[in-house]
Design a protein around this nucleic acid. Structure first.
Length: 120
DNA sequence: GGTTTGACCATAA
DNA sequence: CTTATGGCCAAAC
């Protein structure tokens, strides 16, 4: 694949949004997508990051709603992401899960917190 | 310009 | 808990 080196449009928003995430914090694709205006574009968020390679975008701070690292096929990226997060102080659970409730970074109050998943 | 795909999410079983 | 299915939308082919 040969992605463009310039801002493809939607990706630009994703990149800018991910750049907002402070170190030691994590966020989910859905949150980024919601912050962009539509929670349905969650797939594009990850897909946009897929085009990333060496940029100022902390893609490793973006995980899925399951509080786990998502990767389809190449597990190498997942291991790398885990190392990058650990380097920032993010601790992983025994099942490779992070404390989303505490580390989840919210871009704005635009996200509905109606459904609170009470687990554990 | 139609088809395929994809680092997802929510819901159901 | 895990697995399966549908949906959603932009970019790549």
């Amino acid at each position: 694949m040969a992605p463009r080196a310039v801002g493809p449009g939607f990706h630009a928003k994703v990149f800018a949004m991910v750049k907002r995430v402070p170190p030691g914090r994590i966020t989910t694709y859905g949150d980024v997508a919601t912050a962009l205006g539509s929670p349905r574009v969650a797939r594009h968020v990850g897909w946009a990051l897929a085009s990333l390679t060496d940029r100022d975008v902390p893609w490793h701070r973006v995980i899925n709603a399951q509080a786990r690292i998502s990767f389809k096929g190449d597990s190498v990226r997942g291991e790398l992401q885990r190392q990058l997060l650990e380097a920032e102080g993010v601790k992983f659970d025994t099942r490779d899960r992070v404390d989303m409730k505490a580390l989840r970074y919210r871009f704005h109050d635009l996200i509905h917190s109606d459904t609170e998943t009470l687990d554990v």
